[in-house]
């Protein structure tokens, strides 16, 4: 086994799928020679050429729409959207076009497209380069949404996404591109809709996505030292969502905190908490607690930005409150 960065993992997944299937191509801004600002795609244009690693003008709605059309007619685009925040520019093509085409055509047209983008704050990039907007697309029927939490997931989920016949949006955590994890050399895929129990525990369940998986693992360490056994679960895809695994854990521990880096209001945490309330209510000893990013635009100043995202200490503190039996309302 070897350790590689999340960035290398994505690069490998793309290279393998492009070798396997000549209809797969990458399109986006500075994806070729520059290999993206995060250097995730370095080397791909050398192997696959500029016909399949396509640099575009700064025209997100344009190349997104073009990719939808290409996907409907036999190609398999992987669209590179430099920052997750730019998803607002392509919403029509993604949500009105890509998401609905299969349904509106009565199942006759497919849009096998992957949109690769990112999420994550605390990079000092201010309000238009720091958002975690996965809840917006998860809201739209017809779009699958994957949230890799390490290099291993990034590779396995990317390969599955490319082979999927539906539009899939993958959000990578831009702060994790250089983080290493063990990734097998031999080929593997991670199926959608299968949560990963990162750590087993008895007293409380921490359901965490993407960047928040690390945070919750650290919180679990803090809690373990205090004699509280936390289970950490990573859903890996939020559409489809592996309800069964989440519910099983909720019923086992009877206490749940859902942690996600999207805004808390009207977000992923509320959705997951709602499903657990509906389907495991009588097994719970406390309300399901939501912890998302603070409901403010992401501020530039480090003094403010750092307090907008859940930290291991904050998660541990919430867990203690739940364990103490106090009926709390998540702030």
């Amino acid at each position: 086994m070897r350790n590689i960065t999340l960035s290398q993992a994505v690069n490998e997944a793309l290279a393998e799928e492009m070798r396997r299937d000549s209809s797969v191509f990458i399109i986006g801004e500075d994806v070729a020679e520059a290999g993206t600002p995060f250097k995730v795609l370095s080397g791909l244009v050398e192997e696959f050429g500029t016909a399949r690693v396509v640099d575009t003008p700064i025209a997100e709605p344009g190349f997104m729409g073009l990719a939808v059309g290409a996907a409907m007619t036999g190609a398999r685009p992987v669209v590179d959207l430099m920052f997750g925040d730019f998803i607002f520019l392509i919403m029509d093509q993604l949500c009105n076009q890509a998401a609905k085409t299969h349904y509106m055509s009565g199942g006759k047209l497919n849009v096998p497209l992957v949109l690769r983008t990112n999420l994550g704050a605390t990079r000092r990039s201010a309000a238009q380069h720091s958002q975690s907007l996965h809840a917006l697309v998860a809201h739209i029927p017809g779009l699958k949404v994957a949230l890799p939490s390490s290099a291993y997931e990034a590779k396995g989920l990317m390969k599955t996404a490319i082979r999927d016949n539906n539009p899939v949006v993958i959000f990578e955590d831009k702060l994790m591109y250089n983080d290493k994890a063990t990734v097998p050399e031999e080929e593997f895929l991670i199926p959608f809709g299968e949560a990963n129990i990162k750590r087993e525990g008895e007293d409380i369940t921490l359901i965490a996505t993407s960047s928040m998986v690390q945070v919750c693992e650290k919180a679990a360490d803090i809690l373990a030292a205090e004699g509280i056994s936390a289970e950490v679960i990573d859903p890996r895809t939020i559409v489809p969502l592996d309800e069964e695994t989440l519910l099983r854990s909720a019923k086992k521990t009877s206490r749940v905190i859902v942690v996600d880096e999207g805004h808390q209001n009207f977000g992923i945490t509320g959705e997951i908490a709602g499903r657990i309330n509906e389907k495991a209510f009588y097994h719970l000893d406390a309300p399901v607690v939501r912890m998302g990013a603070m409901d403010v635009p992401v501020p530039f100043s480090p003094a403010l930005e750092d307090i907008t995202v859940p930290t291991p200490e904050a998660v541990a503190e919430k867990a203690r409150l739940l364990m103490s039996g106090e009926m709390i309302h998540a702030a």
């Binding site: 201010a126 238009q128 635009p297 530039f300």
Partner: peptide, 16 residues
């Protein structure tokens, strides 16, 4: 530098 006396009270930074 993200300071309170900045034009945007540190909320915007260079790009805003």
């Amino acid at each position: 530098l993200g300071k309170e006396e900045g034009y945007c009270r540190g909320k915007g930074g260079s790009m805003h």
